[in-house]
Design a protein around this nucleic acid. Structure first.
Length: 557
RNA sequence: GCCCCCGUAGCUCAGUGGAUAGAGCGUCGGUUUCCUAAACCGUGCGUCGCAGGUUCGAUUCCUGCCGGGGGCACCA
């Protein structure tokens, strides 16, 4: 094989031009070829179930298709025999980069690719840099992501950190895939809890007994001591809680575009307007002195009260007004909620449908709760009882990177145990450092190169064909999966899939670093240049992955 | 009773329609004249909770059951 080079016209010598949209489309091209070959074998239409997938085992090649398994019944041929015909047909087509086509197992057709496709990929990654792997799935669609939304009656606790990390990372994922994300925090600065909170501050300031429904946390005592004598405890308390929460979130590198005040919304008359709108749909009725919404029309298991028989609105009514208002800041609403709120979803969706919104424009993500462990015992997180671990303290102790990575290690569907002692004392063996260390090693190579005067030649002048070591191939293969990982992660609302990928990438880089020296004197100069650029591609991958998690990529550790 | 999530290696968890189910931690052992050993390599006898069903094929989808967590207000 001759060396693969990048020429100024933007085509790869000896290879077809890359697709104009710049997407990594080898897989799509291969699938098209498979479908065309099936057509020539008389299979029409080709079932949608025919797909290309990555085999679990390397000896099964780089790509595999289930086509023969899926189609055998329809054409009355056994899968292996049909697979053989398909393999022959595809072999005759002499597809680019395809080095071998074999039939295996029950009838899989496996493709083995030449390393040239990975060399082409390397060029694509390096040329695009941080703009690589940006599939435009959203096409500019606006998405409102509401998360955390803790009551403004105290500081955030360590459990809130999970929602902060998850919500922000999901927003980053949406932004990378062609959506416009709007991060929003809803402040319930109205209602009975606020009264209890203000009264607790007053009691602590005056040294009187805490009211029955008061907040017992130490922070109330501290804050009351800070409160100026002439301050309005309610207004001051709300501002104080907001400032503390905002500071904790910023320490985690999470910032919001909008903090929405429930009190301001209600004062604007939005609640009355939304009630009138609901009445206009005929979905509102009175019974037992209360005003009800017929949410059972749209999947709820019982109707819900909007206005209690004492004339006071329930929490639901302002919440409906709020969600309706959010559509001004996003065509799709994503709400990230704790498991204890799952019952709330059906009634809210029903209300929004009555207001004319599409059922799937409101997406609730129900995350499982966080258990906090310290000294081997669970720490209950409650503002009321006073035992709590503040998010600010946790982040202060272990840093934002350790915290975010820990929160994003697992699926949001799994209840999570955060062991503070593990985060703190095992800091050096924490998975986040494993990934960051890979990045630090990349930069250390460049620092060393400068030190010894090893110049990196322009990519266009570098022969990449020497990149055939299994470590080099493994690293490139993992890089190649990022676009599809991104698609899956955003579709599943699953940032932890990025965490998994970035750990895999770091692992591949550490293996490469160990076995494939870049600057050592006994390395062939052409190969050394190719490895310099492979290192750069790895840097791009780590940078994109860590950025999606909101974790820094330090150049030195 | 009804609804949601989970049940995979000693522990913490990935994987979610494919061919012999994977990582990290822990255990035990090995690797360094030149880019950071925060690394690398080897070491795992797992009924993928149990039973049916759908499918050419199920840890993955469906149903039932068992176990764990969370909900089921004219509270928020």
């Amino acid at each position: 094989m001759s060396g693969l080079r990048w020429d100024p016209a933007g085509t790869l010598a000896g290879q077809p031009s890359p697709p104009p949209d710049g997407k990594t489309m080898l897989r799509d091209r291969l699938l098209d070829d498979v479908r065309a070959a099936l057509g020539r074998l008389g299979i029409d239409p080709v079932p949608a179930a025919v797909v290309l997938e990555r085999p679990a085992r390397p000896e099964h090649g780089d790509w595999s298709t289930n086509a023969a398994l899926v189609c055998s019944k329809a054409v009355g041929r056994n899968p292996r025999e049909l697979g053989q015909s398909l393999a022959d047909e595809l072999a005759a087509a002499e597809l680019p980069h395809v080095e071998g086509i074999e039939i295996a197992g029950p009838g899989f057709v496996n493709f083995r690719l030449a390393p040239t496709w990975l060399h082409e990929l390397l060029v694509e990654i390096v040329e695009a840099g941080d703009d690589w792997a940006k599939p435009n799935l959203g096409e500019g669609a606006t998405v409102n992501v509401e998360f955390v939304s803790a009551n403004p009656t105290g500081p955030l606790h360590a459990g809130h950190g999970r929602w902060a990390a998850y919500g922000d990372s999901l927003a980053r994922l949406l932004e990378r895939t062609g959506h416009v994300a709007h991060r929003e925090f809803y402040v319930n600065d109205r209602g009975v809890q606020i009264g209890h909170y203000a009264n607790s501050l007053i009691a602590r300031r005056d040294g009187t007994a805490l009211p029955e429904d008061g907040y017992q946390g130490q922070y109330i005592i501290d804050w009351a001591a800070e409160m100026p004598a002439d301050a309005d405890p309610r207004a001051w308390g709300l501002e104080k809680a907001h400032a503390e929460q905002d500071a904790s979130l910023k320490a985690m590198h999470v910032t919001f575009d909008t903090w929405s005040s429930e009190a301001a919304l209600v004062a604007s008359g939005a609640m009355e307007r939304v009630l009138a709108e609901l009445r206009a749909t005929g979905a509102v009725y009175e019974e037992g002195g209360a005003v009800w919404l017929r949410t059972t029309d749209h999947g709820d298991d019982k109707d819900r009260v909007l206005i209690k028989s004492d004339g006071e609105p329930t929490y639901l009514l302002p919440d409906i007004a709020y969600h309706a208002d959010k559509y001004a800041r996003g065509d799709t609403l994503i709400n990230i909620l704790g498991a204890d709120h799952h019952g709330y979803v059906a009634r809210m969706r029903a209300a929004l449908i009555f207001l004319g919104h599409e059922a799937d424009s409101f997406q609730a993500i129900i995350g499982q709760n966080v258990k906090l462990v310290r000294d081997g015992d669970e720490v209950k997180l409650s503002k009321r009882t006073g035992t709590m671990v503040e998010l600010a303290d946790l982040v202060d102790e272990v840093g934002p990177d350790v915290a975010r990575f820990a929160y994003l290690l697992q699926s949001i569907d799994t209840s999570q145990v955060i062991d503070i002692d593990v985060l703190r004392t095992q800091a050096s063996e924490n998975p986040v450092f494993y990934v960051q260390y890979a990045n630090a090693r990349i930069h250390s190579i460049e620092r060393k190169a400068v030190e010894v005067g090893a110049v990196r030649q322009p990519l266009a002048e570098v022969d990449l064909s020497g990149l055939t070591h299994e470590r080099e191939i493994a690293l490139l293969k993992t890089l190649s999966t990022l676009p599809e990982i991104l698609e899956i992660a955003v579709a599943d609302r699953a940032p932890h899939k990025i965490t998994t990928w970035v750990r895999e990438l770091a692992s591949d880089f550490h293996g490469f670093y160990r076995d494939c020296p870049v600057l050592r004197s006994d390395v062939d100069p052409d190969l050394a240049q190719a490895r310099r650029w492979l290192t750069e591609a790895a840097r791009v991958g780590l940078s994109i992955g860590l950025d999606l998690l909101g974790v820094d990529a330090p150049e030195q550790m």
